[in-house]
Structures are given as structure tokens and as C-alpha cells.
């Protein structure tokens, strides 16, 4: 086949069947829906939600995890598009990290050292480690499926960011159930669970997002 023949063939397939933006939007919709169902019907909202949500620790826990999800998704969309700079969007992810570090520092400054151990371990570190990956599974699968349409420079990195986005989404939902509100708990167990999901995302991305 001569190149001119190939061009005729490509031009006949004019319609763009695999736009990236709508695919990511669908993946987010699926992920959010599954997380909401798991939260409401599986682990349930915390009973004292109405009063708890007003406490700064609870609001921070939910807000910072949601911020990670949003920033990771924004970064992911850029990563998926060749030639779009990603460094700035990547650096924005340092903001929630910095926020968590500041929250930890404030917690250490404002609470007695004797209570730190209890705040760190909380009531349910094991559940947190189990449920964040469980919540993240479907969002990660959906996001990776969408990202197969993308063209990331580094499939591994794209997979990692997909994992981080799924973990952020999962954590932002699980946080409505989780009774442990200390930033010490957040900075430990949420971070471990999210790192695991990010790692799985990187491994999958390396295989699935090659183009």
C-alpha cells in the first residue's frame, strides 16, 4: 500500500471515534457512582455526620482528599495529550501534600503528646487500608480504560497518576464513613492506602497504556 493509498483510507475514517475528554468524563461518572453506592449501602455514612462535618478535622479530611482527586484528574488529562506541558499541573499536587504536613504540625502543636498514639492508630486503621483500595478499584479500572485512548509520554507515570486519582476519589468518599479524624491518622493510613493504589496504577499503566 502506498502512503497516498493509506491517506485515502485514513481520510475515509473521518469521524473521531475515540476523543479523550468524554472518555475521562464517563470514567469519572462511573467512579463517583460506584463510590457513592459503596459508601451509602456498604460501609454507611457515619452516624454523627451532621455535627462531625462542621469540625475542621473532618472537613479537612474530606476536602484534602477531594482536592487530590481533582488535581490528579486535571493532571491526567494533560498527561494523556501529547505536547501539553504537565510540570505546572504536577506541582499543584504538592499543595494538598503541604496542607497535610501543616495539618499534622498543627495537630502536634495543639494536642498533648500522650494522645498522639491514640490519634495515630485511631479506631479502624485496618479498615482504612482495606476500604480505600476497595473503593478505588472500579474508578481505577474506569480511568485506565479511558486512558487507553490517551497518548501519554510515560505509560507508567500515567498509570500512577490514574491510581492517585482513583485513590483520592476513594478516600474522599471513604472519609464520610471513617470515624478517625486526626491528621495523624490521615497522614499515615490514608497515605499508605493511596500509595498502594498509586503503585498498582503504575504497574497496570505500564502494561495497558503503551501506544
Amino acid at each position: 500500500m502506498k502512503t497516498d493509498d493509506l491517506i485515502r483510507l485514513l481520510a475515509a475514517d473521518t469521524q473521531v471515534r475515540e476523543p479523550l475528554g468524554p472518555a475521562i468524563a464517563v470514567a469519572l461518572g462511573v467512579g463517583l457512582a460506584v463510590c457513592a453506592v459503596l459508601l451509602v449501602f456498604q460501609v454507611h455514612l457515619r452516624h454523627d455526620l451532621l455535627t462531625a462535618i462542621l469540625q475542621p478535622r473532618v472537613a479537612f479530611k474530606i476536602g484534602v482528599t477531594a482536592a487530590v482527586a481533582v488535581l490528579a484528574i486535571v493532571l491526567l488529562d494533560r498527561i494523556g495529550r501529547p505536547g501539553v506541558p504537565v510540570v505546572g499541573a504536577g506541582r499543584l499536587l504538592l499543595l494538598p501534600l503541604a496542607a497535610v504536613l501543616i495539618a499534622v504540625a498543627l495537630e502536634l502543636a495543639m494536642t498533648p503528646a500522650a494522645s498522639w498514639g491514640e490519634r495515630l492508630v485511631g479506631r479502624n486503621p485496618g479498615w482504612c487500608l482495606v476500604y480505600i483500595p476497595v473503593f478505588a478499584a472500579v474508578p481505577l479500572a474506569a480511568i485506565l480504560t479511558a486512558m487507553r485512548r490517551a497518548a501519554p509520554e510515560s505509560p507508567t507515570r500515567a498509570g500512577a497518576v490514574a491510581g492517585l486519582a482513583a485513590a483520592g476519589m476513594a478516600a474522599a468518599f471513604y472519609a464520610w464513613h471513617c470515624p478517625d479524624d486526626s491528621p495523624l491518622f490521615l497522614a499515615t493510613w490514608y497515605v499508605i492506602a493511596s500509595a498502594a493504589v498509586t503503585g498498582v496504577g503504575a504497574l497496570l499503566g505500564r502494561r495497558l497504556l503503551v501506544w
Binding site: E18, R81, P82, G83
Partner: peptide
Amino acid sequence: LKRGTWDPSRPIGPWLATIVRN
């Protein structure tokens, strides 16, 4: 196959160059 990743509000040069490099 990857033209759905091009953002029409951006110039196509860097997009194309990155595809070629890949």
C-alpha cells in the same frame, strides 16, 4: 488513531512532534 487527544485550542506542532518522537 490518537487525534482525539489533540486539544483544538492548542497548536498542533508540539502534539505532532511528540507523536513522531514516540
